[in-house]
Amino acid sequence: HSTEQTEIADRPVCDSLNSGSLQLVSKLKNPSGSCSVDVSVMWWEEAGFKEPRIITACEYVVSLWKPMDPCQWEKIHTWHFTEVPVLQIVPVPDVCNLVFVALGNLEIREIRTLLCSSDDKNEKQKLLKSGNIKAVLGLTERRLVSSSGTLCDQQVEVVTFADDGGTKEKQFLMPPKETILTFAEVQGMQEALLGTTAMNNVTIWNLKTGQLLKKIRIDDSYQATVCHKAYSEMGLLFVVLSHPCAKETESSGSPVFQLIVMNPKTTLNMGVMLYCLPPGQAGRFLEGDVKDHFAAAVLTSGTIAIWDLLLGHCTVLLPPSSAQSWSFVKWSGTDSHVLAGQKDGNIFIYRYS
């Protein structure tokens, strides 16, 4: 497998911009030749020892990579798909040794659990859900929420997993009668779940009872809002949103992320902060990921930009590498690394500091 991984450049690849820097620590090369779609890092347990593993997804192949030393990763397992292509990996926190993937063409048609056993006789993948799936998110406490169906027969379902990947419990949430675009957990509140809808509402559910607690109308100026992070403080709900359809304005430049505060009791809400590109940078939000108080986005220009949400400004810009645009970016859930992917399957791992 060593030929699948190129040498490591031990040098900063990007000059510090307003206090942040990225250092390339490792590179994974995809030999399959098919289009790369996603990457994720998860914990894996073997003989009582937990270590991070990287999952890479191409259109028809999902691969599991094991760390051989701090900078070298070796591919140890692959799952192949023949009919429906992979759309995304669905990370589920608190779950070890199980990979969840969403498959489909433009929309999700299936969610599958991928298992890795040494015994080839065992089934290596299980169909978890199929149908017209609009949104999916892995939640803490070994849960996964998904919405499916049309507005007339919409289902919002939470599945809790057993250790073997089987379904331990199922719970249905009250549907909002609007197409759900994304879900988000409320940090520190295990029973609260948020959704964003095509009608520009933020919905709040009680995960324990299934109640739809509130629909909160947010600013109409942005469509197709994605919720990346939410937390509750002093009775108010703060949400970090991105706006793939946001247009550049003269006053604030190009907004990529936005922090909104809402009062769940009154549904009144307002913008707190717009996270825009530095002057002279063009591009809209294409894809992104938020972890703690850092937000990373791939822009339509092919550049990756990172914001410190507390400082309020962009800290690093990572232009396309080897004349190839970036196509996705993820924070590692296990450390302060950034995983940046290109369509041809190359995954670059950077240390962010």
Binding site: L212, L213, K214, M234, G235, L236, N263, P264, K265, M270
Partner: peptide, 23 residues
């Protein structure tokens, strides 16, 4: 804009909304 524009705030909003919302 200020915090006052958001109306009366409750620290227990989640519990209160859960008790008010239909089951």
């Amino acid at each position: 804009c200020s915090k006052a524009d958001l109306g009366p705030i409750s620290l227990n909003w989640f519990e209160e909304l859960s008790s008010e919302a239909p089951p």
